[in-house]
Design a protein around this nucleic acid. Structure first.
Length: 998
RNA sequence: GGGCGUUUAGCUCAGUUGGCUAGAGCGCUUCCCUUACAAGGAAGAAGUCGCAGGUUCGAGUCCUGCAACGCCCACCA
């Protein structure tokens, strides 16, 4: 045996990991028989290295994978990384700007993408190394990246199918526009932040004054939080139930600054003013709403209902512009605003109204404003052409199935495909409450905008071409074609010949021809080839077709992750064997963004849910409950913890913290690393480190006593009571840990392991073994070897490195050990998970040893209280008869050894004398003779007496209560009776002791 | 505005269908470098379980209300 006194993770981790790789234990073989267990990793973003949240996420996955692997499953843990479109492009742009002073637009597209690729290569390598350092048992041979060739093919195929099914469309919509990164964001990518803002009350003059209730009205007053959008106003709306509506609707208002004449219209969306209302909007409302269809989602709806013109006054970067749909910006006041940033323009416009005496009021207003989750600037609702996925549209290739009960979601829509499995239990969330989040989101889902104005990502596989309408062909249907005769003629012209022949032999494609969104007299054709075909693409380009410049939303490829990593659309062995996967383990922030979309796509493309279970783990916060972040400097780098404490220590602590709450706190402190660097850590990791060290040393001790002679032989609970006890405890632990893990109760499993290893095995069994051996007994080798063997197996999923290292030592000392005479497996990672030996579980023995433990603790406590020096021994008389006496007799040596007792007498009729301390442990009482400190003893006994009297009164009250006797379960009543009896007996003993003290 | 979570010892947290004389680790106090481990051992102190009501023989646990903190969702009049 060769083990240092202190466990040194650095000395074993890399070596152990290499042994696992050499043994190939992580590699999944689709041909292997038996049950399967599969987890697909939530691919970390290549934006940055992993933080402690990733460490938690991957630790939990590894624990489950390792346990199932040992439990005889054919396991696959699929690793990989995510290109994280907008996030990665943003960090790379930032870095290039900081380091080289160049912007993205200073590069051509290819050149820029190459730079992002470099970043990706660097961080992908780091991330995968980090996962290995943590001990993750991924199948590295199958490592994927969301933009690698395999995934790209899946993306192309998926897009093609959605497009062919008519689920992808081009639409003009108000989208969430991020003016800083200049791209559209999905609803989920918008973060709502509370902003201290204002309501500005602005007067819009009527073109002609109006008589209203005997007064002459010259203007209407609108209230807005966004004065700058007034440049795009195309109406003022009033609620039809407003008493002023009858007179005002149909009148015209002259829009200040611009001079545009706009109508007053009636729409019930407008909130009626009411200063007393509980509704904040009613209190702030003037009853008049400025309508800006281009810059507000509500107004867009109103605009659609009333056929209002749409005037967009912003450039994509959020500055005021007359080049994106604003045609009447001729007034000098309007011209002066051009080029201003939106917030600058806000100030300028408010100032203008103030000067013109049109600003009626300004009031403070706190409200939620959407911000970009990337750039953190306020989102601009912005009108643009984007690609969308229709999520509530019925899918033509699926049978009509009606609406999902209680929703407006068609069962055969994408949203329906995602929603149904959670309702019917095919997908189960742990903790269950997250199913509600998931459901609510899908039930209110709007179409998914999937185009992003970025360069880093999967480019949208659509080529388009503007086609001039042929003057002499009517749009008549053509037999056997989706397209009409006019579209066909236009297409034929665009490719300079028969378009049919043009595509001949080019594989599947889908073509769509629509009226041109902007130009009269033109059509626009979109074509989506099934998969990459550079020849076809080149020919299209030759004929003036252009590939869409945008890329797909990152979540599009993420949604395919469970199938793309397994080689879909090919019908691979991997897919057949491991899909659907067993579990998805992730944080709650991406339940909607990611989990729901994987279910959606898994169902749609594969006809099956991607996973049966979804486990949502807690988010780690710092000691003050704040998110860990770079800007706060409160983040913890897993590699630093591995450096200072070891990977196992980190894993142990993280798993022990994992309860079903939504947040866990981790106090952050500074530490100095071995190499002198300062880094963040948490005192929590000491728990894990201490645990590993304890295990290491307990193993050292066991191995010392095992070496030199064979340990083999059938292990079975023999005569020796403490051997039987530890075997019973171990069997119980096997059962409990297996159960806890299968219910994802990580902290319960880890705590059970902790108690068994530290308290049962170290504090009691090993200490008892020392006493037994000191008394000349031979080391209980078979039991010792078996106990260590079981502990290592049980602990391996949580602390794989240290257990594997000890396993090798155990194998060299005791290669054959029970149960059975089997040669132990060479690698623990692929050894068998222990079976719970339920016949070894022995409540009687556990109760007896429990009583002995209680007695020993009592004796120690009395010694300590009476300041008996540690080296001194004491004389003890145990007052016990019958079974108790027999038990004491059997374990006398142990009691003497562990409590420092030189003489142990058993006398059922002994009573305390003035120099005795009394110890009570359940039914058993003991006297510690010749203790001097009578005052301390009297104080303690008096205090104890009070506690007992309170307890007895309580128990008597319960037992004297007919309701309790009548309603409580018999066993509870019985337990109460027993307790009362014990307390009374102790009370008598204490009384007698007090008397003897005089 | 809607929803969810949390509130238990100085700190971080357990406490699964109500039966609790409320637990653990850290920290604190005392003693011990006992030949596995001082990253250790033995022992101890420490809690009207956020507040107010209710249900029940019995409430940390269930119900109602309130408060504080945090998170998620929601189209910025």
């Amino acid at each position: 045996m060769d083990m240092d006194k202190v466990y040194d993770p650095k000395a074993v981790e890399s070596d152990v990991y290499r042994r696992w790789l050499e043994a190939g234990v992580f590699h999944a073989d689709p041909a292997a028989r038996g049950k399967t267990y599969c987890i697909v990793i939530p691919p970390p973003n290549v934006t940055d290295k992993l933080h402690v949240g990733h460490a938690l996420n991957n630790t939990l996955q590894d624990i489950l994978i390792r346990q199932k692997r040992m439990d005889g499953h054919s396991t696959l843990w699929m690793p990989g990384t995510d290109h994280a479109g907008i996030a990665t492009q943003t960090v790379v742009e930032k870095r290039i700007l900081a380091e080289e002073g160049r912007r993205r637009t200073d590069f051509d597209r290819q050149e820029f993408v190459a730079r992002v690729q470099q970043w990706k290569d660097e961080y992908e390598r780091q991330i995968l190394d980090q996962l290995r350092s943590m001990g993750c048992s991924c199948d590295w041979d199958r490592t994927r990246f969301t933009m690698d060739e395999v995934c790209a093919k899946a993306v192309r195929t998926a897009f093609y199918r959605l497009f062919a099914d008519g689920l992808i469309y081009r639409g003009k919509r108000l989208v969430n526009w991020d003016p800083a990164t200049q791209t559209v964001l999905a609803d989920d990518e918008v973060e709502h932040e509370t902003v201290q803002g204002h309501f500005w009350y602005m007067r819009y003059p009527l073109v002609e004054p109006v008589e209203l209730a005997g007064e002459t009205i010259e203007h209407v007053t609108v209230a807005t939080t966004r004065p700058e959008t007034m440049l795009g106003d195309t109406a003022v709306a009033i609620n039809p139930n407003d008493p002023r509506a009858a007179v005002l609707v149909g009148r015209m208002v002259r829009l200040p600054i611009v001079g545009r004449k706009i109508p007053i219209i009636a729409d019930d969306l407008v909130v009626l003013p009411d200063p007393e209302s509980a509704d904040e909007k009613a209190r702030f409302s003037t009853g008049f709403l400025k309508v800006t269809p281009a810059h507000d989602p509500n107004d867009w709806e109103i605009g659609l209902r009333h056929g209002l013109p749409v005037v967009n006054v912003f450039a994509p970067d959020g500055t005021i512009s007359d080049r994106h749909g604003w045609e009447d910006a001729d007034a000098p006041e309007a011209q002066a605003l051009l080029g201003m940033d939106r917030f600058e323009a806000r100030e300028a416009i408010v100032e203008w109204f103030r000067k013109e005496d049109l600003l009626e009021d300004v009031r403070e207003y706190t409200h939620e404003v959407g911000h970009s989750y990337r750039s953190h600037v306020p989102i601009e609702p912005y009108l643009s052409d984007q690609w969308f996925i229709a999520v509530k549209q019925q899918i033509p290739s699926l049978p009509e199935a009606g609406l999902i009960a209680g929703t407006d979601v068609p069962a055969n829509s994408l949203a329906g495909l995602a929603l149904a499995p959670v309702l019917d239990g095919r997908v189960r969330f742990t903790p269950e409450r997250y199913a509600a989040t998931y459901r609510a989101w899908l039930e209110n889902l709007r179409d998914w905008p999937i185009s992003r104005q970025l360069w880093w990502g999967h480019r949208i596989p659509i080529w388009s071409c503007d086609l001039e309408l042929p003057p002499d062909v009517a749009p008549e249907p053509v037999a056997g074609h989706d397209l009409d005769a006019r579209s066909l003629a236009a297409l034929t012209r665009s490719v300079g010949g028969d378009w049919h022949a043009f595509f001949e032999g080019q594989g599947a494609y889908h073509l769509r021809v629509e009226p041109h969104p902007e130009q009269e007299g033109f059509l626009r054709a979109y074509i989506c080839p099934e998969s990459g075909n550079t020849e076809l693409e080149a020919r299209l380009t030759e004929h003036g077709w252009q590939q869409d410049p945008d890329v797909l939303d990152t979540w599009f490829s993420s949604a395919l992750w469970p199938i793309s990593t397994m080689g879909w659309p090919e019908e691979t062995e991997l897919l057949k064997r491991f899909y659907p996967t067993s579990l998805l383990c992730t944080a709650r922030e991406i339940i909607t963004l990611w989990v729901s979309r994987m279910v959606m796509f898994g169902q749609y493309f594969r006809g099956e849910v991607p996973f049966a279970d979804v486990y949502i783990h807690a988010m780690i916060q710092d000691g003050q409950g704040r998110k860990m972040s770079k800007s706060l400097g409160n983040g913890i780098d897993p590699l630093d913890i591995i450096d200072s404490h070891g990977a196992d220590a980190m894993r142990f602590t993280l798993a022990q913290m994992t309860t079903e709450t939504q947040d866990v706190r981790m106090p952050v402190e500074s530490m100095t690393l071995p190499d002198g660097r300062q880094a963040n850590t948490s005192p929590k990791f000491d728990i894990g480190r201490n645990f590993c060290n304890k295990l290491w040393n307990a193993s050292r001790f066991a191995l010392m006593n095992l070496s030199g002679a064979p340990a083999w032989g059938q292990v079975h609970p023999g005569e020796e009571i403490t051997d039987r006890w530890i075997l019973s405890r171990l069997a119980t632990t096997v059962r409990d840990v297996t159960g806890s893990l299968s219910a994802y109760r990580f902290n319960e499993a880890v705590n059970a392991l902790y108690r068994t290893m530290w308290n049962d095995f170290c504090d009691w069994y090993l200490e008892i073994a020392k006493v037994r051996m000191a008394a000349g007994e031979e080391a209980p080798k078979a039991v010792l070897a078996h106990a260590l063997d079981s502990l290592l197996r049980l602990l391996h999923p949580v602390v794989p490195f240290v257990t594997e290292a000890i396993w090798a030592q155990l194998n060299s000392v005791a290669p054959v050990r029970g149960p059975g005479d089997m040669q132990a497996e060479p690698v623990l990672a692929s050894a068998a998970w222990p079976r719970a030996q339920s016949e070894w579980i022995d409540p009687d023995v556990e109760g007896q040893i429990g009583a002995i433990q209680e007695l020993i603790s009592g004796l120690r406590e009395a010694r300590s209280r009476h300041n008996v020096p540690a080296a001194d021994t004491v004389r003890v008389t145990v007052i016990a008869a019958g079974d108790d006496a027999a038990l004491i007799e059997r374990t006398a040596g142990i009691i003497q050894g562990l409590a420092g007792v030189s003489e142990l007498k058993i006398d059922p009729s002994a009573g305390p004398s003035g120099t005795d301390a009394t110890v009570v442990a359940g039914n058993i009482q003991a006297l510690l003779h010749d203790v001097i400190d009578t005052e301390a003893e009297r104080a303690r006994l008096t205090k104890r007496m009070e506690t007992l009297q309170r307890g007895i009164r309580g128990a008597e009250g319960k037992l004297g209560n007919a309701g309790f006797l009548g309603n409580a379960p018999a066993e509870v009543v019985e337990r109460e009776k027993q307790r009362l009896a014990e307390m009374r007996a102790e009370q008598a003993a204490v009384e007698e002791s007090l008397k003897s003290l005089g």
